[in-house]
């Protein structure tokens, strides 16, 4: 390269320039909508959530019971086999106590933190289950390995979504 000169001479903006509207603004809002085809497996999964139950699919080669269900086993790479209902109870695999909201604002004092958790569902293979949240629990009582059970919305409020389960709460077997 013959001329190794860097570019300079632009004008940096101050907070005032922006507040007083002295600078060029291009405002735009993204309007992109998608109509995702759920496919065979997830459609059935959501339908059954609406019915208040959790369905899985089995692979008869690796013997896994897979939740959420899928039409093929991603490890054996073959079509999956049978539809199997599993329990709405399980074990906390991992969790986090979140003091920050979805929009990056901090939760207000006194508000319960968000409690996302991975639940290994009873009846599904080890390590498989549902990504959800915990409720009716004091955050400091949550432990890995804790037994939990789904708290469902009333049938008439269910829409066929993972939020048809409100949360998972601690659960003692009788």
């Amino acid at each position: 390269m013959s001329n190794r000169q860097y570019i300079q001479g632009g004008i940096g903006l101050s907070e005032d320039d922006i507040q007083q509207g002295k600078v060029f603004f291009a405002e735009d809002s993204l309007n992109c909508r998608y109509a995702w085809d759920m496919g065979v497996a997830i459609e059935r999964y959501l339908r059954e959530l609406k019915n208040g139950r959790i369905i899985a699919k089995s692979c008869n080669e690796c013997r896994r019971i897979m939740v959420p269900p899928r039409m093929f086993c991603e490890l054996c790479f073959r079509p999956s086999d049978d539809w199997v209902f599993v329990q709405d109870t399980g074990v906390v695999n991992t969790f986090s106590i979140c003091y920050v909201n979805w929009d990056a604002s901090r939760i207000k004092p006194g508000e319960t933190p968000h409690l996302p958790a991975v639940i290994e569902i009873d009846g599904a293979s080890k390590g498989m289950g549902i990504m959800h949240r915990l409720g009716e629990v004091d955050p400091k009582d949550i432990k890995i390995g804790m037994r939990v059970k789904a708290v469902w919305k009333p049938a008439e409020e269910r829409t066929g979504a993972i939020t048809d389960i409100k949360y998972f709460k601690p659960y003692q077997e009788v």
Binding site: D37, G39, V40, A41, I42, R70, F77
Partner: peptide, 16 residues
Amino acid sequence: TSRDVSYREMIFEAAV
């Protein structure tokens, strides 16, 4: 359209 399958199921067909 391909309403009967998800993108995963559609790609699985091509991969198989």
